[in-house]
Design a protein around this nucleic acid. Structure first.
Lengths: 245, 245
DNA sequence: TAAATAGTGTCTCTCAGACAGTATGGG
DNA sequence: CCCATACTGTCTGAGAGACACTATTTA
């Protein structure tokens, strides 16, 4: 850094510029009662007080090293879960989406295993797990209906060409359960043989050799062969029409 | 809106909260000399004065209705092009990417037809079209090397499963040119017959019945059957392994 | 009619879809 | 031994890859 640049930075006062409000919002998804659910929070403050909203809040430039940290902080506050799958969906910033002023929000979605939740957190009055289809019929705060639509569509798209939905399952899962998660996200039944052929060929799951107690023939339990992180490159688990070569 | 809420908003002063700096950066791509190029700007101001950077700037909450408008404004300033293909890539915000403070940038990429550029704009000293591979070897300002990597990867990914690269071509184009664009983006040769079968089956291009003058057999010219916008759902133009069903 | 590029015919092999069939547990 | 659910065998049809072949232009 040159002296010239050092002088410039000393004289620079970022607070002189009226930038937008910066927030992070989250669509936290889990599978529950054979359907995709999302966590909604009842707003306790103005604006839109009393309406249901996606969890979120302002970026805290003192506490959060980056937006990912903001998202993890919010997620831990609401669910107690520290290491979910977290993926940035989109950023929406405009002058009219928040009455407080020009507001910019970075939207994330998180995938969690419903069983990993603390059961105590179920009976909180201002938080509710809601079926995504029902949530989209509610009069959500701000533009959260749009945000939820985008997050849900992203997840459904990824079910088409990646193995990401595995992150909605517990550490050990059966292939029948896995297929069901994909069917829920895709909204269509899948062919059992094809599904199994592909997920096994993809080499992303392995048998544990264990089963869960069952009244019928118990299904083999599987686990991931490696962890799934954002930008992982698993082959998809459903057949998509080949691309335009 | 309730009286209660109105009172809250009147008392609200957004400038009291020290939010992050909010900027928009752009990777503007075109095909040139048989390679993917990106527009770089030499920074005239601190910080990182004199280093090459992606075009971009602060969100102007008075002029820009939303971040898309900021991106279009920047694009028009640098290229004079008003209606490119524009797509949001990612948002990066952290405390250490800009010495002026906690800075959040929304990254877009734009695809333009090189021939649509005003030739005058070629000889500007502080702007340069650079081969993307070369650009990534330069010591770019801030974290723009990371940003450019992400934008270029997104474009390459989309070449795999969408018809988006057609937006790098002029209004009329040949199938051989189209195939070449895909090959540049994918970094691998494609099978001519398969490519043609797929692009024609996709029903996204149609013959114009015209040709360009040529020293050899002239190629048929095609045009898009409909415009490509963000979130369009064209089938891809290359063969991808089917997803995990 | 030669050269060069545009564009096609057609074989093969892979694999998704379909679905009937077998396996394995508890009652 | 019956039932329900887990899991497999196998046929078929679609279509991607490969590549040799034909077509069309100028010189």
């Amino acid at each position: 850094m040159t002296d010239d640049e050092r002088k410039f930075l000393e004289a620079y006062d970022a607070s002189k510029f009226a930038g937008p409000l910066a927030t992070v919002d989250m669509a936290i998804f889990c599978i529950r009662d054979d359907a995709l659910h999302v966590l909604l929070i009842k707003r306790g403050n103005h604006p839109d007080k009393g309406r249901w909203a996606l969890p979120g809040g302002f970026v805290d430039t003192r506490r959060d090293a980056d937006t990912h940290a903001t998202a993890l902080r919010k997620l831990a506050e609401k669910t107690g879960i520290a290491t979910p799958y977290l993926e940035q969906v989109v950023t929406v910033g405009s002058s009219n989406r928040d009455p407080r002023g020009w507001a910019l929000t970075v939207l994330y979605f998180a995938l969690i295993d419903h069983a990993a939740l603390n059961p105590d957190s179920e009976n909180v009055e201002d938080a509710e797990w809601v079926d995504v289809h029902e949530a989209l019929t509610r009069d959500l705060a701000f533009d959260h209906r749009d945000l939820l639509t985008r997050a849900a569509r992203r997840l459904a798209d990824k079910a088409r060409y990646s193995a990401l939905p595995l992150k909605l399952l517990p550490a050990e899962f059966t292939l029948v359960e896995t297929q069901r998660v994909f069917e829920i996200l895709l909204g269509a039944p899948l062919e059992k043989k094809s599904f199994r052929r592909r997920i096994l060929a993809a080499d992303i799951v392995e048998e544990t050799g264990r089963t869960r107690p069952s009244a019928r023939r118990p299904a083999q339990l599987y686990r991931l062969t490696r962890d799934i992180q954002e930008d992982f490159a698993f082959p998809g688990l459903i057949h998509t029409k080949p691309a335009l070569l």
